[in-house]
Amino acid sequence: MTTLQQLLGIELPIIQAPMAGVQGSALAIAVSNAGGLGSLPCAMLGSDALLAELSTLAAQTSKPYNVNFFCHRSPLPDAVRDAAWRAALVPYYREFGIDAAAAPNAPARLPFSAEAAELLAEFRPPVVSFHFGLPAPELLARVKSWGAKVLASATTVEEAVWLEAHGADAIIAQGLEAGGHRGIFLSTDLSTQLGTFALLPQVVQAVRLPVIAAGGIADAKGVAAALALGAAGAQIGTAYLLCPEAGTSAVHRAALKSAAAHHTALTNLFSGRPARGIVNRVMRELGPISAAAPAFPLASAAIAPLRAHAESTGSGDFSPLWSGQNASGCNEIPAAALTRELVALLR
Rank of each mutant, 00 (worst) to 15 (best):
G316P: 08
W162C: 01
A84L: 12
G21H: 11
P18L: 01
A114K: 15
A234E: 04
L119V: 10
C330E: 03
A100Q: 15
K63Q: 15
E332I: 04
V161A: 00
A165V: 07
E95V: 02
A214R: 05
P104E: 04
A84P: 07
D317C: 00
E164N: 07
D82N: 13
A254D: 08
L89T: 03
S249N: 09
D82L: 08
L242Q: 07
R73F: 08
I29L: 02
A295G: 08
A103C: 03
A114V: 11
A59H: 10
V128H: 11
G133N: 11
P137I: 07
L241Q: 14
A220L: 08
A344S: 15
V90M: 14
L256M: 06
A213Q: 10
P201Y: 13
S113C: 07
A226E: 06
I236G: 02
L209P: 00
N268C: 00
S249F: 10
F70Y: 14
G183N: 10
L306Q: 08
L176A: 11
G175D: 04
S249H: 12
V207D: 00
Q16K: 14
P125I: 05
N268H: 10
R284Y: 06
A59M: 08
H309Y: 15
E285N: 07
F197S: 03
A30R: 10
V128D: 05
A206N: 13
E177H: 08
Q60T: 08
V143G: 02
V143F: 15
A310V: 05
F123G: 00
R124W: 07
A141E: 12
G329S: 06
R253A: 02
V80A: 12
A59C: 06
G216V: 04
A49G: 05
A43R: 14
I278W: 09
D99I: 08
D169C: 06
G147P: 10
S187Y: 11
S249D: 02
L76P: 07
A327Y: 14
R81D: 00
A327G: 06
A246H: 04
G38N: 10
S319V: 05
G180F: 09
R86E: 06
Y65T: 01
E245I: 01
A213L: 07
A291P: 15
G316E: 03
P126Q: 14
E164Y: 13
N326L: 00
A220K: 12
A28Q: 09
S191Q: 15
A220Y: 11
L256P: 02
K149F: 06
N268P: 09
H252K: 08
